[in-house]
Amino acid sequence: MREMLGIAPDFAITRTSLLGRIALREAVQMAVLTKIGNRRVAFVSGTTVGGMEKSEQFYRDFLENDKRNEYIALHDCGACTEMIAKDFPGRISFQTTISTACSSAANAAILGAGLLKTGRADIVIAGGTECLSKFHLDGFNTLMILDSQPCRPFDKNRQGLNLGEGAAYVVMEMADGAAARQAKPLCRLSGYANRCDAFHQTASSPEGEGAYLAMMAALQDAGLQPVDIDYVNAHGTGTPNNDESEGHAMMRVFGNRMPWVSSTKGFTGHTTSAAGGVENVISILALTRGFVPANLNFSEKIDSLDFTPTTEVKTHVNLNHILTNSFGFGGNDSSCIFSKIS
């Protein structure tokens, strides 16, 4: 990654920031943000690991000697965002960091929409970044929610999640702003909502209250009915608790008219704070290219659920509205709806 970015081997930068910089560059290039005049650009990035991957490596040095002092100030989440933003070819007029665990990147998009709608920014780059760390790998392991096999979202015999790493950002702007600079939007963020399960620090409620509230509020925000949704990109981590809880919430929202549903974590692993960004990008790709991604490793339906996920990729389908879920520890549940531009 250092090579891709042209960063010297001895330059102090965390892996989370490297991942973020690569994603930011791609987003900037695709949205042609190199020629934007004096438009105000906000950068909203989610992370939870931040600089932990270096801190866990050098923690003893931090306390006992002066060999690795350069990484002390890079530990916190905000330092990671700052380090990514420095790579932006222009002035970032406002930057901030969201840390709502596995829904961080989705909430970044939600804040982004708020910044645009209230006229506080002209362009927003929103998403998240997360690298693997021993800290959270071991942490998830203490909660006994890791699967030693490839994860099996929505499968009866699922054992847990697989951790992944990554970064993803979307570039957002109001329709008139995009038109004024002749940018061609990919789709519309037609609705979104953030709700709290308020059930347990790490477990989701059996009936998926927070997830249900988030999906319903996002539909209302978009002015859509459940039946309008063509595909749900589920949070679907593959843990026994999440998939059953999210499944019940989806049954409450969609009743017996369940849209296509898949979790794409079989392809990406659970990229935690980046997951909402990665899945926003996958949803936008699905919407614009007309396909439904497959839910890998599914073989048997969960007893208490009435639906099965889409196990084979469906191509050449017409999708108008996609709902994507991002849920985090602490019951931080967010849903976003992407719609085709009519």
Partner: peptide, 11 residues
């Protein structure tokens, strides 16, 4: 007690 306590007891 709850599920997290159970995990602590396992440890």
């Amino acid at each position: 007690l709850d599920s997290i306590d159970a995990l602590e007891l396992i440890v």
